[in-house]
Design a protein around this nucleic acid. Structure first.
Lengths: 201, 201
DNA sequence: ATACTAAACGGACCACGGTCCGCTTTCTAT
DNA sequence: ATAGAAAGCGGACCGTGGTCCGTTTAGTAT
C-alpha cells in the first residue's frame, strides 16, 4: 500500500472494477513489462502496447491517461519502497539522523534509484507538462524542503527546488550514460554540495 | 559576430549561399518572429511556419534541422549578448571580480535572461535529445566550471552540472509562471546557494 | 545562348501521442 | 430471465515533428 498516490491510475479507486477491465489491466501491465524488458522504455509505443496486449488503443489511454502515466504505474512499486525507506526506514535515510546526514543519504539513494530505473523515470518525466507533475518528484521536493528548513536555510522551498533539478533523472542518466561520469563522482559531489550548503560555521 | 556557434544553422558556413536560399531564409525568419510574437513560441508549428513563409516544409527542416534548431536561431542574438557580457563585460559579471561574485552575478543574469526568453528557451531545450545539446548550455556549464575550479571546488565539472540543472529554463519559468515564485526569491536563493557553496571558512 | 551540375525545393508520407464517439459488455434491479 | 444503465471498449481520426525523393532552379563552364 502506498501513502501517497504515486501513479495516476485513474479508474482504480472505483468501488467495483469490472471484470473485463481488471483482465485488460493485467494484460496491459504484463505486456508493457515485457516490452520494456525486451526493447527498453524509450522504445515502447502506445500502439505497440495496445497491439501486444490485444486491446484497443483507447483502452490503453483510459487506463493510464498518457504515456507518462503508464511509466509511473510501472515505477510505482519501486518508488513506494524508496519512499518508505526515506520516510520511515532506519537512519541516516530515515528519521533519527541529522538533516545534513539525511539529505546526503537521500541524494545518494536517489542517484542509485535513478540509475536503476532511469529509462522509466525519464519517460515518466518527459511528456508531462512540467516534470514537477510527477507525484514522486513532488514528494521528494517536500522531503528535502523539510530537511533544509530544519537546517535553518532561509528559503527551503526554493532551495529544495534547485536540488530537485540537480537530481533530475535526465541529468543523472545522461551524466552517467552519455557523458561517462561515474556514479561515485555524482554521489561524492552531492555529498560535497550538501556539506557546504549545511555547514553552520 | 558570435564566438561560439550558438545555433546549428546548418548550411550557413557554405562558401556561396544560393540567392533563393537566402531569400527563403529571410522569409522563414521573419515569419517565425511574427508567429512567435503573435501566438507565442509554444504555439508555433513547423507546418504553420512553412505555410506562412510560403515555403515547403522540407525547406524549413533543411534550414534549421529541427524545431529546437529554429528556436536556437531565433535566440542567438540575445544569447550572444549575454555571452559577451559574462565573458568580456564589466565585473561582477565579467572578469575582474571574485569567482563567488561572478557566479552570483552569472546566475542572477541567467535567471532574468531566462524570464525574458523563457518560451524560446524551453522550446529549444525540449525536443533536443538531451537538453545539454543546446550549445549555449554547454558554454554556460563551462563558464561555471571555471569559476568553481578557481574557488577550489573538488569536482567543478559535476558541480557545474548540478548548478546548470538548477538554472534550467523549464525550472525557472515554471517556478515563476506556474508556481508563483517571484524572481526575487529565485535570485535571493541563488545568492544564498553560491555564498554557502563557496565560503572558505 | 546552352548545357550541365549540384544545391535547393516542396509536399506526400510516416510514426507517434492523444482524442472521440458509436458499439459492446458487465453488473444490478426486478 | 430480462431489461436498462453505466462502465468499458476499440479503432478511425487528428495534429505534430520529422523524412524522403522526384522535380526545379541558380550558378558555371563553354
Amino acid at each position: 500500500m502506498s501513502f501517497i498516490p504515486l501513479q495516476p491510475d485513474l479508474p482504480l479507486g472505483s468501488p467495483h472494477e469490472r471484470s473485463d477491465a481488471a483482465r485488460n489491466r493485467e494484460r496491459l501491465l504484463s505486456a508493457a513489462r515485457e516490452l520494456v524488458d525486451e526493447f527498453g522504455a524509450e522504445a515502447l509505443t502506445m500502439d505497440a502496447l495496445a497491439c501486444k496486449a490485444k486491446v484497443g488503443k483507447g483502452t490503453v489511454f483510459r487506463r493510464f491517461g498518457s504515456r507518462a502515466g503508464l511509466m509511473m504505474t510501472l515505477l510505482s512499486d519501486a518508488e513506494s519502497d524508496f519512499q518508505r525507506a526515506f520516510m520511515f526506514g532506519p537512519p541516516p535515510l530515515g528519521p533519527g539522523a541529522s538533516p545534513a546526514d539525511r539529505l546526503t543519504a537521500f541524494g545518494e539513494g536517489r542517484i542509485y534509484f535513478v540509475l536503476e530505473n532511469g529509462e522509466l523515470l525519464k519517460a515518466a518525466g518527459a511528456a508531462t507538462r512540467n516534470r514537477f507533475d510527477v507525484p514522486a518528484t513532488k514528494l521528494s521536493h517536500r522531503h528535502m524542503e523539510v530537511l533544509l528548513r530544519e537546517a535553518g536555510i532561509a528559503d527551503p522551498w526554493v532551495m529544495a527546488m534547485s536540488l530537485t533539478y540537480a537530481l533530475d533523472p535526465e541529468r543523472i542518466v545522461d551524466d552517467v550514460r552519455v557523458r561517462g561520469i561515474s556514479p561515485k563522482r555524482l554521489t561524492d559531489s552531492w555529498r560535497d554540495v550538501v556539506a557546504r550548503l549545511m555547514r553552520t560555521t
